[in-house]
Design a protein around this nucleic acid. Structure first.
Lengths: 243, 243
DNA sequence: ACGGTTGGCCGTACGCCGTACGGAAGGAGG
DNA sequence: CCTCCTTCCGTACGGCGTACGGCCAACCGT
């Protein structure tokens, strides 16, 4: 491509030497592209097109596709608003954070599957982890117990939401989703003597994902609470949904 | 390619009309290939080569790459030996199954990341789920509580092992792994005032993954146990590693 | 015995993909 | 004015998933 000299001032940017691209711009464009086309529809070429740039331009800022995906993941974690754990009881803090995480993942359905494949060290992800550690340390957990608790919560929200997303067939097509569920239910019914407990208790038609998520979360939080010694510094029962 | 007529009986198979390929053979070859080359090194063409078949031969048995991956995943779940839950206490059953699941996933490090991306309905995976449901139903859990408990356990082992695998740098290269950990530690230390609780409590050098896994598991199991009413039908404390 | 059918196999080709390489453009520094 | 350095990106290479259609051996009906 050859460039023409523009015929008037108005047709150029005011600070032409400022680089057109940046990690920030790349990350934002990647998130947009992933939201629009899903993880299978993402490619460096499409990303370049979205940036109005050449196929190889982004490679000045990034070592390759994987770097871009890392940037996109952390970019999304910036959407989680971290409340100050100052005085709030730890159960409330964690419940709110985890519901927010789940909501963000559902807004960007490609996130949990990518997280399963690459370790994440971006600043926004670390900030969320920091909040978890702080809240639970303040509650009285330390050392290996603390590590285990944070890990369990992190993996739970990630795993649960990943499963929820794949079950709902990538969220967008509800017709195909219910068809898949119908077929799966029939498949299970035909084999009900092979999997008796499963067919009796797991009705796929039930899509109370919110309640389900909260219940599993309470399970873990109760387990944590039991570790804190029995002084019961917060109210011990389940909590209102609080989001 | 043109085929020669073989010059003696010995050079042909005895039942030539039996199809050379089958879903079973494809699944096994896929597992081998994934073990050898990882998920990024897997391709339909390499699979065909491993099967001594043409590039398109497998497509008689399978609709595409995704089907092959589904088959491979379920194939691997066949490696988990399911013990009869008959009389064993539920905590012991679940602990054993989950440790086995983790071991199998570490033997096939591509498994957890694929599971995060596609729902699994294969017979072997369902059999494991059936065992979970049966054990917990027998323990006294029902309805939504049961669903939540099974989900939590499933996502925990999947999420934990996925993270463990990515942290250990796909298991094979230990030098690169420790280098990554060293750099990550340095990165965190430089930002220790941004993430105080995290840097204080999460020392990445500690690689007691087994203990960590068990601890998180106990957290969940305790939460489940609390749901069972307080008759404490099994011994309530933590359990020996039992694997 | 034999022609037609069919099921398993796969060669070829198309349009994508990630990215290595080297070069152009143009401001910065001397 | 010359040189360097940053940014951008055209081209090209090897590999990918799979649609399409043809080939061949075994089987079936007669």
């Amino acid at each position: 491509m050859s460039r023409q000299r523009p015929p008037a001032v108005w047709f150029t940017e005011e600070q032409p030497r400022k680089p057109r691209l940046s990690r920030e711009r790349i990350a934002r464009a990647a998130v947009d592209l992933l939201d629009a086309e899903g993880v299978t529809g993402f490619s460096m070429r499409r990303l370049a097109a979205r940036l109005d740039a050449g196929v190889m331009s982004a490679y000045e800022y990034v070592r390759g596709k994987e770097d871009v995906l890392d940037l996109a993941m952390d970019q999304v974690f910036a959407e989680i608003e971290l409340d100050d754990p100052g005085t709030t009881p730890w159960r409330r803090v964690l419940t709110r954070q985890l519901h927010q995480s789940r909501r963000v993942m559902k807004r960007h359905p490609w996130l949990p599957s990518l997280m399963a494949v690459r370790p994440l060290l971006g600043p926004h992800f670390l900030a969320r982890s920091e909040l978890f550690y702080a809240a639970l340390a303040r509650a009285g957990l330390h050392g290996p117990e603390l590590l285990a608790a944070v890990g369990t919560l992190t993996y739970y929200v990630q795993g649960y939401t990943a499963a929820e997303i794949t079950w709902r067939g990538s969220v967008r097509d509800s017709a195909e989703e219910t068809e898949l569920r119908r077929q799966a239910q029939r498949y299970l019914d035909q084999r009900s003597e092979l999997y008796p407990a499963l067919t009796r208790h797991a009705q796929l038609a039930d899509d109370d994902f919110d309640g389900q998520f909260q219940r599993g979360l309470d399970l873990i939080l109760d387990g944590i609470q039991a570790r804190l010694g029995h002084e019961a510094q917060d109210h011990p029962g389940h909590e209102a949904q609080d989001r």
